[in-house]
Amino acid sequence: MDELELLKKDWQKDNIDYPKLTREDIFPMLLKKSSSIVKVLLYISIAELILWVSISVAPMFLSEDINTKLNLDNVYNNFNLIITIIGITIVIAFVYLLYKSYKSISVTDNSKKLMENILKTRLVVKQYVGFNLVLIAISTVYEMSSLFKTNSDFTNEINGAAADGEIFKYYAVIILVVLVIILSLAVLFLVYWLMYGILLKRLNRNYKELKKLEIRSSID
């Protein structure tokens, strides 16, 4: 193509007035902080880790009070212990994976590999959040069911209500709780979607472009 060859000739002439930076201009640049997306991604990951660890640790501090009220000590503590052990193991594994994944991001890799490694790091965080949600769901269901099974006052109350024909009140509460959970999940997903969507928009677009190129060329 003639035009592109003309452009190439012009491009290589180095006849454009680029700013000429001196060593004195460059030295201070080395001390400035990077604002790359990898750094932002790492800060967000650490913030998420702290948030989710505190969410899973919080019930341990609150549980004593709840346990005495509901006489659930034995059942709940055994269950709680298992959940805590699993939780801590996962946190350690997650921190290790995140660190490893973050370290694998190298600006000197080829573009595709670099993008893949960044997206992999993001996936580690995603999986961790997903795991936490599953864990919270399991423990909520378990606690609710053990409440029904073991707390005789509560069962009596329900039976009483059923006899009086007022059982719908309990159903209403259960439905309300479920709705609140669904709503909080929706808000959480929206926040995630927006946060990562904005942050990784360009990266995702460019990665897709590279991937698309492979698929198209293999068809050709």
Binding site: S35, S36, I37, V38, V40, V107, T108, D109, N110, S111, L114, M115, I118, L199, R202, L203, N206
Partner: peptide, 18 residues
């Protein structure tokens, strides 16, 4: 040669427009 790679990677992957 090394600069090309780092420069392009920064431009298409890491750089966030201010």
């Amino acid at each position: 040669t090394w600069m090309y790679r780092v420069g392009l990677n920064t431009a298409i992957t890491l750089y966030r427009k201010s």
